[in-house]
């Protein structure tokens, strides 16, 4: 073990252990940026963890008129699950309930749609036979009549099996306020980065977990090694002066995107120096036995 210290912050010589996921991207457009954002937020609400949400999702970024397929303001959304079939169900339900329903929106593929997940392909049936299919430059779109005109929805969107879930940083600080401020900076730095999202509330999670539990049927439980209140009672990873730990979880379409995001996050925290009382930056892992992706903190800042 050879931790390093940057601007007074210890970067623990460890790695974030992450898992393969199946991920997709869709583009939501609307007459205004506001309504594209509303649709996207609604669609990615309650999508923090596959443990109970069915999917992990979030807004990747907002898109200007010149970047969207229909020339309207848009938002790009990423969605992740553990399998393609679950992703299909989640996508259908979330677009069906949150985008189809939202005034003025349209929904397009965010990855090449060839042989991808069904999007309009399923939702068209809402049209009850009045829907129309249109193929433009090899891409198929559905026009589904709705009460405010037409819901235009691409037939399919692509997906990737190379996606990764569970990239993370654990920020250990002397105070809760300091941990939160440092994490906010990190999340802000990651926000414009492509191909990733931070699915937890505001990008930050406080209930880091370990695998297993003393209770039967409970698959995960609190990460006692990082709970400041248990420092003396368990084999803790925390120094005695640590008062709060917060975690940033990152899902990405590629491992590289996650590594880059982690690097940017660490840099943003470290750039604050010791101002926020950040003691160290660590990462969650399970000893390297469970997930194939290991993001070593030293490497991601290199």
């Amino acid at each position: 073990m050879s931790d390093i210290k940057l601007k007074g912050v210890t970067i623990v010589d460890t790695f974030a252990e992450a898992f393969p996921m199946v991920g997709t991207r869709v583009i939501i457009t609307a007459p205004t940026a506001k309504w594209a954002d509303i649709a996207a937020r609604t669609m990615t609400g309650f999508a923090t963890s596959v443990i109970a949400c069915g999917a992990e999702g979030g807004i990747e970024r907002t898109l200007s008129r010149s970047e969207t397929y229909d020339g309207r303001p848009g938002v790009s959304v990423l969605l992740f699950t553990m399998s393609q079939s679950k992703l299909q169900t989640q996508l259908r339900d979330r677009v069906g309930q949150c985008v189809l329903t939202c005034p003025g929106t349209a929904c397009f593929a965010g990855l090449p749609p060839k042989k991808g997940l069904k999007l309009g392909h399923s939702l068209r049936f809402f049209g009850d036979g009045w829907q129309m299919s249109k193929v433009l430059n090899g891409r198929r779109f559905w026009r589904v009549p709705v009460m405010d005109g037409e819901f235009v929805c691409e037939d399919r969107t692509g997906y990737t099996r190379d996606a990764v879930g569970g990239g993370n940083l654990l920020v250990v600080a002397k105070s809760h306020a300091g941990a939160l401020a440092a994490c906010e900076r990190a999340v802000k730095a990651m926000a414009p980065m492509p191909d990733i999202i931070t699915p937890f509330p505001g990008g930050i999670v406080r209930s880091g977990s370990k695998v297993g539990s003393k209770y039967k049927g409970q698959m995960a439980s609190t990460n006692d090694a990082y709970c400041p209140t248990l420092k003396g009672a368990v084999k803790s990873e925390l120094p005695m002066n640590a008062e709060a730990v917060l975690e940033i979880v990152i899902d990405g379409l590629t491992p590289e995107a996650i590594a880059k995001a982690m690097g940017a996050g660490i840099k943003a925290i470290v750039d604050g120096g010791t101002r926020d009382g950040v003691l160290r930056i660590a990462a969650g892992n399970y000893g390297g036995n469970l997930g194939p992706h290991h993001f070593h903190l030293k490497e991601v800042i290199a």
Binding site: T29, Y69, D70, G71, R72, A106, K134, L136, N137, F141, R143, G149, E150, V152
Partner: peptide
Amino acid sequence: VIEFTYLNLLERALKAD
């Protein structure tokens, strides 16, 4: 008379050609 998002798509697709 109705507003059609589809017309945007078509116009852009034609422009590409």
